[in-house]
Structure formats: structure tokens, C-alpha cells
Design a protein around this nucleic acid. Structure first.
Lengths: 303, 303
DNA sequence: CCCACGTGTTGCAAAAAACGCAACACCTAA
DNA sequence: TTAGGTGTTGCGTTTTTTGCAACACGTGGG
């Protein structure tokens, strides 16, 4: 969109913190970019960037303008999406922010399905640390967030919200493998394979352990959930997993999943939603709705 | 704002219904304007105007885009206003839509006050027919509407909402002049000076008359309320007026105003507000708030 | 200390975009 | 048929934007 060049330029500078690097990403020279900014500032009669030796930083006026420009860019995307929709093209691009615990099997299946039905709709998926997913909605980097136990719910408008049962994953020859359910203290006798700290599932486990006055001491910490699960194979080590992230065919790996009971502790919530107050492009809105339906049929819904 | 040229162009064309007339108002040639539109349509990959021999009309895609562009222009005004506000300038322009029944003494006083306190804030006042004031908010022609008995309240977000007592205005030698209150049937014996039909106050009078199974037959209908009031002087004719529009010093004209009782009929509501869902520029928001305070202290508030 | 590297800014000439003019094609109402 | 309205297009000119190179300034490391 030609007439949104200036907003895009300003956005890029704010994102990179310097003229030159922004200019490079935009495919123009720093001088051209600089003059655009100077011209804009002259039009406004106010400076919008603080000049530091290290680069440019939006001042207060710049922050206001930046917010407006970001909204403007996002709105234009929405409009283009609407227009494409009414002309029967159903095109658009959807950026999704999520965490490792969620994506593994659930998201790829839905995206594949969408790609078949609406080939013109493209996707971007950002794997972010706990808390960052919600933040990435604010500057419109991403449209949709699907997260477990979100940190900032003020900015997040949930469309789906449901509890996620935790499971203990172990070899099918494991002493605990035949049990209907497992409790946290029963796990302490075995080697533990735990996700690294910031993850929401790790936090849930820590809380559950604290409740029974124990501490979880892992033999292996990792943020690769695949690695943890595979380590369980042919060993007595235990790994943990959310319902949404259970591998469909665990048997082939000689693994079993047993529900983890955590009495007195509320199960963690999985939330899918968008930035509060924002109207999504039709493509994104539609996809979020199918995510919601899929989650609602697979898992319970809580209000 | 240089980068808002295209939105402004589209808006002007939609407003005028033709390239050439829009081009003239914009101070460019039709060919230049035409190429801008063609370029925009190429960027979008969709036509946004229907070409008729009589001119251009936005199609469905165009309507969507138009709404977005209008919002964009209005938002930019708001942003500029915010920026001016934080730099201590308190500048901006406020467009007010209202009806004859309201403005007479109330609005000018407030505007004068504002002009003294914030000289950089300028005003535009549109006197419109009943119903049109609310409509003019939709395309952001006006920022604030102050209307009596609005027709479309879906679009109108009220900030102040209060009842307006009706008064009968007559010569101070009139037989009814000494009464505390007057009822509608008591007026039927005298010549009536009534506002013309579409006005809200006329509608209130018609309803009140209907309730008592009579019809009001005016000797003079006019949409100049001043004219009506002056006709009451030195005659037995009666004119009608809202509380907000009572002349401060009626005595000097040898006139008196007696409250009109309309039992069983809800008094008409005076509403001051803005377009639902829109965030006003700071200058407009501030002015609307002073309007609200002024109305709330002078007249009752209804929720 | 200075040197290398990062930053934003500016002069100038070249390239690109936008513009106005005039002509054209079309429709409609007088 | 004519006169006046519409949008569109080719072309030469004007305006704007750009890239290149040089400059000025601040910072961190040898």
C-alpha cells in the first residue's frame, strides 16, 4: 500500500531503533528515510524521535503517532482482507503467537486443513516464551495468541478458554504405567524430565509439588519437549505433558500417558484469543473461530 | 498530512460523486485524480468505484475502504490534537452539529468562553434538520452533536442526556401571562406561532395536542424561532420554546414564558454526544465535557 | 591517545513519480 | 443534433524522491 509507506517507515525505525538498519530492511538508503522523517516532523510541527548517538527513539509524541500508525497498518490489512473476502477470494495472512507446549500436534493439523480449503490464506507461527506471546499482540506483530496460563490477560481477549489436564508420560513397562491416575508424590521416586522454568507447564508442576511440601529435582531440564518425551522411552524417567500436546500414537514409541492428579490445585487454562479491542481481519477471525470450535470439542470450556 | 492524500481524494470523490468536481475542490486536475484512483485500484487488485456516465459511485469494496479512510482521517486529527495537547498548545478544530432549537443562546456563550481560554481551538457549527445532525457524525463531517429528540440513537453515544421543559412565550399583557403553568388546550383559543414540521419541538407539541384530541392550527409556521418569538410581542399570539432556548432577558421585549404542562407525555430529551465507538480528538472531547457540565448544572440529567 | 565503527545529516545530480494540458470516447437531456 | 456532463489516455514538463558520497558527532577498544 503506497500511501502507508510513511507509517511503515516510522514503524520500522521504532522497531529497529536506528535509521540505517531500518533503511536497510526497507530497501532504501538512510538519507531517503531520514528526509521522510524530517518531512513528517515538519508537517506535524513536532519532533517525533529523540536523536541519540546510538540511534532514534520515539518521544512521547512519537509514541502516540506510532500507536496510530500501527493501528492504521493493521486496519488496512483488515480492510484488504474484507475486500478479498467479499470478492470471494478469501485471502490474507495470519500471524499466530504461541508457546511450545501448545503447537506440537494441534496447530499443524488445523493449518494444513486451512491451506487446503483456502490456499490464498498464508500463515506465520511465532514460538515465544511465556508472556511474550501476549505482548506480541500489542504491536500487531501477531494477530492470534494460543497460550497456556497467560501472564498478561488485560491485553488478551479470550475466544476460547479451557482447562488442560496434565499427563505423566513414561515407558509402558514402568511400574506406574498400569495405574489409572498418578499423583505428584508418586513421581518423586523416579528420575524426572522437566521443561525449563519459564514454561507454563513447569510452573504448574512446581505449584503442585509445593502443595505436597516437596521440590521437583529434574535429571534433565530442557525446552525441547520432544527430547523429554523420547528420554522416557526405555527408561524409568518420567516426563510431563499437556492433554493438547499428547502424541496421538504413543504406543508406537512404547510409551503411555497417565493423568496426573493435582487435588486442590486448579488445572492450568489454555487460552486462544486476540488483542482486546481489536477487530481481526476476516481470515484471522475465521481461523480463530475454527481453533475455538476444535478446542471446544476436544476439551472442556470454562467461563 | 501528505500521506493521507489518497484517503482524502477517495473521500472527496465519494462525497461529490464525480471525479471532475472532486478534482476541482482538491485543486488538481481530473486526470491526476483519475490516475491516483486507478493506481489505488491496481494496488488493491479490485475496483472500488462503479463507473456511471453520471460519475463515480463506491461499490461494496469501495464502501468498506471509504469507511476505513474516513476513520483514518478522523484518527489522524485526533492524533494531531493529542500531540498538540501534550506540547501544551491545546490546538484543534471542533465541528458541532446541532439544530435551531438548541444553539441560540447556549452554544455561543460556551464557544466564546473556549475561544478566550484556548485561542488555538477553532470551531465549526452546522445547523441541520432533525435527524441530519446524527447522520453527519457517521462520515466524520462533525465531531459533536447537540440535538433535541434525536431520530437515530444507534449511532449517537450520549454524554449528556436530559429533559427539556417546554415554555409558552407570550406578551406580558396576555390573559395567560399571570398563570403559573399552562396546558395545551388553554392555548387553542389564541393564534399559534409554530416551528415548522421536522423540528423536534414541533413534534412534541403535535403529540401533546393529539393526546387531548385536538390539532394545532398555526397562523404562522416558520423555522426561524426568532421570528416566532418576536411575533408574540404586542399580540395575543403564542409561541413555544425549549428551556435551553429561552431568551435570558425576555422582560425587555415585554414577553413572559410560562411552563407548558403536558401530563402523560414524557418531556423531550436533549442529548449531547458523539459517534458511538469513536474516540474524539482531545479538544473536542474536552469541549463536549464542558457542554455536559454546563447542561448538567442548568438542567436535570436523566439516565 | 587515536582509530574504527556506529550513529544522523546534508549537497548535488540522476531517476522516478506526479502533474497539467489537450484530445478523445461515451452518455444524457434539451 | 447539439451542448454539457462524465471518465480516460498520450505526451511533455514539473516536482518530488532517491542514491551516492561526504561530513559531523559520539563511543568503545587497543
Amino acid at each position: 500500500m503506497r500511501h502507508l509507506l510513511v507509517p511503515k517507515y516510522v514503524e520500522q525505525i521504532a522497531r529497529n531503533g536506528s535509521l540505517r538498519s531500518a533503511a536497510e530492511e526497507l530497501g532504501i538508503t538512510a538519507s531517503a528515510l531520514n528526509r521522510r522523517i524530517l518531512g513528517l516532523e515538519e508537517e506535524l510541527g513536532v519532533e517525533i524521535f529523540e536523536r541519540h548517538p546510538s540511534g532514534l527513539r520515539p518521544n512521547i509524541a512519537g509514541e502516540i503517532l506510532l500507536k496510530h500508525f500501527r493501528d492504521q497498518i493493521a486496519d488496512m490489512e483488515r480492510v484488504k482482507s474484507s475486500i478479498a473476502d467479499i470478492s470471494g477470494q478469501r485471502a490474507g495472512h495470519i500471524n499466530i503467537a504461541t508457546t511450545r507446549e501448545v503447537v506440537q500436534y494441534f496447530l499443524p493439523a488445523l493449518i494444513k486443513e486451512s491451506l487446503i480449503d483456502f490456499p490464498a490464506v498464508t500463515f506465520g507461527v511465532d514460538l515465544l516464551e511465556r508472556g511474550e506471546a501476549e505482548l506480541s499482540l500489542v504491536d500487531n506483530t501477531n494477530d492470534i495468541a494460543i497460550v497456556f496460563e497467560p501472564l498478561r490477560i488485560k491485553e488478551l481477549q479470550p475466544v476460547y478458554s479451557g482447562e488442560q489436564q496434565m499427563f505423566v508420560v513414561m515407558s509402558d513397562k514402568h511400574p506406574l504405567a498400569k495405574k489409572e491416575t498418578v499423583r505428584i508424590y508418586e513421581c518423586l521416586d523416579y528420575a524426572l524430565l522437566l521443561p525449563k522454568r519459564p514454561e507454563g507447564i513447569r510452573r504448574m508442576l512446581d505449584i503442585a509439588a509445593e502443595k505436597t511440601d516437596t521440590t521437583l529435582i529434574p535429571v534433565l531440564e530442557s525446552n525441547s519437549l520432544d527430547l523429554l518425551r523420547l528420554m522416557s522411552q526405555d527408561s524409568d524417567a518420567l516426563s510431563f505433558c499437556l492433554a493438547i500436546n499428547l502424541r496421538p500414537n504413543l504406543k508406537e514409541d512404547n510409551l503411555v500417558a497417565v493423568p496426573l492428579l493435582t487435588p486442590g490445585i486448579a488445572p492450568g487454562a489454555l487460552i486462544a484469543g486476540h488483542l482486546r479491542g481489536r477487530t481481526l481481519p476476516v481470515a484471522a477471525a475465521r481461523f480463530l473461530e475454527t481453533v475455538n470450535k476444535e478446542l471446544a470439542t476436544k476439551f472442556a470450556v470454562i467461563v
